[in-house]
Write a protein that binds this DNA or RNA. Sequence first.
DNA 1: CCTGAGCATAAACATATGTGAGTGCGGCTA
DNA 2: TAGCCGCACTCACATATGTTTATGCTCAGG
Lengths: 242, 242
Amino acid sequence: MTRMTNPLILKLDQRDRLSDDEKRALENAITRIRVVEADEDIVREGDRPAESCLLLDGFAARYKIVSNGRRQISALHVAGDFIDLHSFLLKTMDHGVSALTTCRIAHVPHATLEKITDEYPHLTRMLWLDTLIDGAIHREWLTAMGRLSATAHMAHLICELYLRLKTIGRAEGDTIQLPITQAELGDTLGLSTVHVNRVLQELRKEGLIRFQGDALTILDWERLKKVGEFTSTYLSLQNEDR
Amino acid sequence: MTRMTNPLILKLDQRDRLSDDEKRALENAITRIRVVEADEDIVREGDRPAESCLLLDGFAARYKIVSNGRRQISALHVAGDFIDLHSFLLKTMDHGVSALTTCRIAHVPHATLEKITDEYPHLTRMLWLDTLIDGAIHREWLTAMGRLSATAHMAHLICELYLRLKTIGRAEGDTIQLPITQAELGDTLGLSTVHVNRVLQELRKEGLIRFQGDALTILDWERLKKVGEFTSTYLSLQNEDR
DNA sequence: CCTGAGCATAAACATATGTGAGTGCGGCTA
DNA sequence: TAGCCGCACTCACATATGTTTATGCTCAGG
């Protein structure tokens, strides 16, 4: 794990320059690295972890299961996301996180995070910011879910994922690799798989996207944004003093 | 504003004991206090505030408007909530906050918050925690919205509001004052007002709640929890070392 | 005392999305 | 090579929730 390839540092550095000292502190915070296979849990609801998980590679989903067995995904995570940073302070996991694909996970002990908050105020703010952006994404999903049509909601999600992957250098032109099944998309959007299928076909028919296998290509970014009522403000992609 | 009556301190102190020093730092962080009338905006989308707002009294809602004019409320805030603490690091507001009732608001300059992060690591963690709980509530709302019936969703919301108000000492027995219209509840749950009305009547008919004027009484807590599939973990009501 | 505003409620009807049951394809694996 | 499994995709039908319009209540203001 050289400094250059740590996707978290890459991401944070775009929001506000990190000092070498801070980068080193983050690098050194990592203890072990673990691989989790697709469909396995990375953290389970009810756990009280002593370390937080940083996703180095792969796709993961935070989810909750409700009584009738249905699942709701409340967040999708990509490389560079500090999956359960919040367990550092929330202590008890109120939801699970599972691997959608094979995932490489780095572990950061909560004790180390506490030391960072004692010694690196600016780095602390950057980590705090990371969780705030998670929150901003949640709010965006809430409004999409509550007030947009299924089609618009899907368009919105695609816009977001495209930009997030681009930020960490994982878009090739207009194409991203999105190894997510339609059932998983349904759990994310709160839709049935059947309806996910209908909605994807509509977006294809409208010439907005192509989606074959895992490769999702955006054919008309402007119109896709418009359909999904997407604005990127909430992703805080701008560099600012924080 | 004596220390004893500041509802934020009251709330934080229940999650992990604050030192007198920390309490003083919080008290002193407040500059001016302002009153905002019902239906006025406290902060607007697009603003770049230089201070964050702490709600001392009243009810407020974070919201977003989508293109067809419909509104989605992504958070309801009560006394003691640090309404836009996140603007400290997010910089640009990606949503508005409006007063549902007359609100008393205390202002805390971002510069002061920065100083707190430099000098009071533990207090910083407590403020961070507060925003993490906001995030946890968002996730809970997402799953309720995506995977629960409208009735269950409403029951869930009522359980949550009851507990949150109880935490800050604003429940009288099984009754809370909930000065929120059915239209606002609809914007919160992603429902039409008509359906909100249907759903409330069902909860009444089932003998779960009474809701006349602003007074909401919980008649059968256990069954209401069950209908709403409610567990309080996500509210982090337990005292822990953080 | 009347008036109008804002709100809860109601009924009839419309529709977006869910459900259940299937087909077919491509890729593993025995 | 056969067989199976996961997944995308279809169709017919069911239903939760939205829409439109209207009524009546309550309360503040003139």
